[in-house]
């Protein structure tokens, strides 16, 4: 086995192990939460008999270990259980929501990642001059404002005043054509882009500046290359690993952290779904959402590791 394959296998195995541990954590976490599902379904006026019957029906009297393995086994078969409050199949209703969330995250990423890298390169090219300072100031301001505030600001100016875009995503229908859908998510995408841009851009700038100190950058300059070519061809390929790491963290955020934005724009994604069911204390739904979020997070970080390893020529082409 070549060292690269071994390293990659290690990373992937580690990711799977981590996911398994997280599943335990999620299960235990929901166990130790105070309160009781049956109580919250039936309300304060429920009789003790009715509560006992409901608990029996819901399987809440089984030992925790049995319930955990039942749940885990179900997850492997694509069965996330049924929602306690509505009686619907979780996998089915969650699937549609998850697709919506991915749709939003995808378009936010398509815009934010290249833009962040490009702005980072531009900031290096004009280091300490006004374009660099402007980029830094604007991105820093956008990350400093809470996302709900940016959301309402954009809604007010672009949606209500200028009427360029619909001010909420309430008209979003998964079966509509792509342009209608894109129009509906324009504002949430803009907010997400502004939120993740600064982090990725600053990391790109720092990683490339770090490489710009190297002797091979001087070699490239002494070949008479233009500054942008020096940055793009010689500095960027050597700063991929740190950039990919921060990009993946932000992509994970786009999926996992959109709760607030989805609520602000009334977008039918996973975040909304999660918030609804947390307030109803619907444990199976919360567990399912938690597991999916964890899987996305761990998966993307694993991907970042894999790309970093593959981007290292010493590992890819051993002696």
């Amino acid at each position: 086995m070549t060292p690269v394959v071994k390293l990659l296998a290690q990373r992937i195995a580690l990711g799977l192990l981590l996911l398994f541990l997280v599943s335990i954590l999620i299960f235990v976490g929901t166990l130790i939460l105070p309160g009781d599902v049956a109580q919250s379904i039936l309300g304060q006026s429920a009789t003790p008999e009715a509560l006992a019957n409901l608990r029996q029906d819901l399987g809440l009297n089984e030992p925790a270990l049995t319930r955990y393995f039942d749940w885990l086994f179900g997850v492997f078969q694509g069965d996330l259980g049924t929602a306690l409050t509505s009686g619907q199949d979780i996998a089915e209703s969650l699937g549609a929501r998850f697709r919506n969330t991915l749709f939003l995250a995808f378009w936010a990423a398509i815009i934010a990642v290249p833009l962040a890298v490009f702005l980072g390169l531009l900031a290096v090219r004009y280091r300490d001059r006004w374009p660099d300072k402007l980029i830094s100031a604007v991105t820093l301001a956008s990350i400093s404002l809470p996302e709900f505030l940016i959301g309402y600001l954009l809604m007010f100016f672009l949606g209500v005043k200028l009427r360029w875009f619909p001010s909420t995503a309430i008209g979003y229908r998964p079966d509509a054509d792509v342009f209608t859908r894109l129009e509906a998510i324009a504002l949430p995408v803009a907010v997400l882009t502004l939120v993740v841009l600064a982090h990725m851009m600053r990391m790109t700038r720092a990683a490339i500046l770090n490489v710009m100190q190297s002797a091979y950058i001087e070699t490239a300059e002494l070949k008479g290359l233009s500054t942008f070519r020096v940055i793009w061809k010689h500095a960027f390929p050597n700063s991929i690993a740190p950039i990919v790491n921060v990009v993946m963290l932000n992509l994970a955020y786009l999926v996992v952290g959109v709760v607030v934005v989805e609520v602000v724009f009334v977008y039918p994604g996973m975040g909304q779904y999660l918030v609804d069911h947390v307030s109803k204390r619907d444990v199976p739904v919360v567990q399912a959402c938690g597991l999916i979020f964890a899987a996305v997070y761990i998966g993307l970080n694993m991907l970042a590791d894999v790309i970093s390893i593959l981007a290292n020529p010493r590992l890819r082409h051993p002696k």
Binding site: A215, Y216, P313
Partner: peptide
């Protein structure tokens, strides 16, 4: 031609 060719070549290309 630099003193340390090892540092003067770009490791990624």
């Amino acid at each position: 031609v630099a003193q340390s060719a090892a540092a003067a070549f770009n490791p990624a290309r």
